[in-house]
Simulated scan of single mutants.
Amino acid sequence: DEDRGIIRRQRVYRRLLMTMGMYRDGDTEEDFAYVRNYRNMIQGELSEMFPCELQVHSSSAFLILEENCRLGRTFPEENTLSDIVLLLYQLLQEEIRTGRVEVPLDEQIRLPKENFQRLVEKCKEQFGVGFNKTYREMTFAEFYREVYDYMENLMMIEQAYGDIYIRSAAGKIMGKYPEDFGKEDKGDE
């Protein structure tokens, strides 16, 4: 029985270790219950191997690595695409705070594709001067494809029925430039 015993345990650990997060849905209900019931044991076993913290929420679970821990691919990475996604999450969190975007009970935000594209476009317009030359000079279509592919590859988003579903990791992290970002140096005024 794949929903019990060692096979389920291996599947749960693999999902926690190899993905951006574990999300509760119809297909993962049993696995998510396992994480909730055995969170202390899982935390203990994994923290013996490397510095990490297991965070379990009502509809998601995340394995958070300490800053100096490098275990395969992590997010954020040290690249411009990671920075762009973090800045995009800042804009998304602002949309949530102002009530323009609602977070449903399952914490998975659903946006029409056009709204998601507008958010990515706003990110490029607002923060683009801080990106490296490659991303600054891309057309919006190229920029959007790069950001979308990166986020999809890391399982931060999923497209279905013409909508973009943004995973709950968007509520846990964001990036921000300093307050004086983009302002010209005024000298000794």
Rank of each mutant, 00 (worst) to 15 (best):
G26F: 04
V85D: 07
F140D: 07
E29Q: 12
Q90T: 12
F62Q: 01
S82D: 03
G162T: 01
V120L: 03
E94W: 12
I64V: 15
D25G: 15
I64S: 01
Q43L: 05
R73Q: 05
T98F: 11
M18H: 00
Q126I: 04
N132H: 06
Q117H: 05
R36I: 05
M18K: 15
L154I: 02
Y23Q: 02
G44Q: 01
V101T: 10
P76Q: 03
V101K: 09
E107C: 10
L46N: 13
V12K: 09
L16R: 02
G26T: 12
V35M: 05
R14Y: 14
V85H: 07
S82Y: 07
Q90Y: 15
E142G: 08
F143R: 01
R24G: 03
L105H: 10
E45W: 08
G44S: 08
E67G: 00
M18I: 01
V103F: 04
K113A: 00
F143H: 12
R11C: 03
L65R: 13
I164R: 02
Q90W: 12
Y89F: 15
Q55V: 15
L63A: 03
G182N: 08
L71Q: 08
E114P: 06
L16S: 00
F131C: 06
E77M: 13
T80S: 14
V103Y: 00
I157R: 09
R167A: 09
I7R: 07
M174T: 00
L86I: 03
D106T: 13
F127Y: 10
Q55W: 04
E142L: 13
A141T: 10
D25C: 15
E29P: 06
I109Y: 07
M49H: 10
K176D: 08
E53V: 08
G26I: 06
E67L: 04
R145K: 14
D149K: 09
G171A: 05
R97Y: 01
L17V: 03
S47P: 05
M156C: 03
R39D: 02
R70V: 13
N132S: 09
S82K: 05
K172N: 01
P178C: 05
R136T: 05
T28C: 14
T19I: 05
R14Q: 08
G162F: 07
E102M: 11
D163R: 06
Y177R: 04
Y148L: 04
G99S: 00
D163A: 11
F131R: 11
E146L: 07
M20C: 06
A61S: 09
R11D: 11
E146H: 09
F116Q: 03
R118N: 13
E94H: 07
E45G: 15
V129R: 12
L88W: 03
E102I: 13
V12N: 01
R118M: 09
L46H: 06
G21S: 08
N68F: 07
Q108G: 01
T28N: 15
V35A: 00
I164F: 06
K172A: 02
I96C: 00
M49G: 10
E158N: 15
L86N: 12
N40M: 11
R167C: 00
G44K: 07
P51N: 08
Q10M: 12
E66C: 09
